[in-house]
Amino acid sequence: MAIKGGKTWLVYGGLGLGGLAAGFPFAWMLLASFMTRGESLRRVFLPESLQWGNYLKAWQEADFGLYFENSLIIAVIQVSGTLLFSLLAAYPLARMEFRGRDTVFAGVLATLMIPETVTIVPNFLTITWLHRNMPFAWLNNWPAMTIPFMASAFSIFLLRQFMRGIPNELWDSARIDGAGHVRFLFQILLPLCRAPLLTVGMFTYIGSWNALAWPLLVTNTPDWRPISVGLQQFVSEAGAEVHLQMAGAVIATVPVLLAYFLIQREFTEGISMSGLKG
């Protein structure tokens, strides 16, 4: 959509202002991460020279290497699980007639509405029980970190909205070809869902990357702890070493940013195709 010449500056002026507001706290973080402690104590704006050593120090002291690996593995498991579960659940909610559909959907949404502070205890009880009664370990292992979040109501909601927008003719012709629901979902719908799935995957990834209280609860050793735990140890530690804290924060943010950068085009598309119709 072209714009008439004279208004270009208005558009970019507005965008620039918004960009500045969105970007400047991060810029502040970035700048602070390159300072010496003296500079950050004196509250200067710009570091005299870039202290790359801060990153090295933060990386080593917070043991980010290990946490990075954990976070990645957890993210992969959780994202794939969430995608599969949400896809399967969204399909009947969007495209099938069955008794209790609205109740199920309302129930799914209701799970969004209770604060985490009070869900943490009962969920731990459930995990403990599973840990004792299942053939594999849940605590201190990936199941406790990922499975409770695999059926996110948000993901199901988003995918359902998307699937509702797909023309019925597709299903009709598939049925004439003798396809059942399973084949229709995985052979015809799945390729169409690429973009919204990426979207859901991205949100899941961000969520898993930043989770903190729950991972600490279900692990006792760093073996399965994600990067946010490493960052927390760093940010809360006494000594007010703001420059190192900020370096740690930047390190923890970069992977998410990178992922977003790589998929952002399709990510946006994913939301647009869902149309978010009610």
């Binding site: 943490i120 205890v121 029980w129 209280a213 600490l216 927390q232 140890q233």
Partner: peptide, 20 residues
């Protein structure tokens, strides 16, 4: 010895540990 978070996190862990 295990680091299990800040005081609040430790309380959380004790809380659920005792309950379960």
């Amino acid at each position: 010895g295990e680091y299990v978070g800040r005081y609040g996190d430790i309380y959380n862990k004790m809380n659920v540990g005792i309950q379960s």
